[in-house]
């Protein structure tokens, strides 16, 4: 009996320890990022760092506003392209799709979600960049290119979440609307979709998270010029790209400034998580 209880206790502690590791991981990530990044912000000046329009490590000028704006523009563009297509496709999957083609379609979209971002980036490089260059001019490595590719990349996230929330709406809502003489479309878009609103919103926010955090695909196609974004067809550098581009050779303050860039990115993601939590809370009420 006694040996049993020891085994029980040991395993209990093991399980607890595993759970603690997860919390430790978050704590460690926060501590290391903040400890290495915040001092740099202090040295550069928070104001100069966040709102500075020039990024010239050679002269110790570190303003990441161009990158913040770059990330925001690119994400916004991706949302403008990805959200309508994603929601509509989710509606198709949940409400139009014949049973026969549902399984392969679902499989394809799952696969899209799993394709590595380098592969996406490479695809963007060989297809979208030349297309944009030939159609609109410029080098092709541009905000527009990044928006299109990212919009495409966030599709699986949006489709997946939206579809499952559409399917969670009781069938009776649809039938009630139909029984009032509404068409299939009106029932879906005026009754079913609004009922699934919070799920759709969650999907969009997750999409934003994915777009803002995307690194490799953006680097490969966005041009990465560290200057204020000037137009749709001009190159742009995002926060994520900034880190990867220069981390390889950065030292001292430059390096710390890059880590501080990571901190800013981290804060963005935390804000997005807060949004998600708020949406969840809104649903429960």
């Amino acid at each position: 009996m006694k040996s049993k209880s020891i085994k029980e206790k040991v395993m209990h502690i093991v399980f607890l320890a595993a759970a603690m590791v997860c919390i430790m991981a978050v704590v460690l990530i926060c501590v290391f990022l903040l400890a290495n990044g915040v001092p740099a912000m202090g040295k550069i000046g928070v104001f100069n760092f966040l709102l500075g329009k020039t990024w010239r490590p050679g002269q110790d000028i570190y303003g990441i506003l161009p990158m913040i704006l770059g990330s925001i523009y690119v994400t916004a563009g991706a949302i403008i392209i990805g959200v309508p297509i994603g929601i509509m496709t989710a509606v198709f999957m949940a409400r139009y799709c014949p049973k026969k083609i549902y399984a392969p379609l679902k499989g394809a979209i799952d696969l899209l979600a799993g394709i590595p971002s380098v592969v996406y980036g490479f695809f963007g490089l060989v297809i979208i960049v030349p297309f944009v260059r030939d159609t609109f001019g410029g080098s092709g490595n541009s905000i527009l290119t990044a928006c299109v590719l990212l919009g495409f990349m966030i599709l699986p996230t949006i489709i997946g979440v939206c579809e499952s929330s559409l399917r969670a709406v009781p069938e009776e809502y649809y039938q009630n609307a139909l029984a009032l003489g509404a068409t299939h479309e009106r029932s879906i878009f005026k009754v079913v979709l609004p009922t699934a609103k919070s799920g759709v919103l969650t999907g969009v926010v997750l999409g934003i998270g994915r777009a803002i955090g995307e690194t490799m695909a953006v680097i490969m196609i966005a041009g990465n010029q560290a200057r204020m974004p000037k137009g749709l067809l001009k190159g742009v550098r995002t926060l994520t790209a900034n880190i990867v581009m220069e981390m390889g050779y950065a030292a001292d303050l430059h390096r710390e400034a890059l880590i501080a860039t990571g901190v800013v990115l981290f804060v963005f993601i935390l804000l997005i998580n807060l949004c998600l939590a708020a949406i969840k809370k809104g649903v429960e009420q």
Partner: peptide, 9 residues
């Protein structure tokens, strides 16, 4: 939080 963090972070 962990699942939302971008891989570069």
């Amino acid at each position: 939080t962990l699942s939302g963090i971008p891989s570069i972070v």
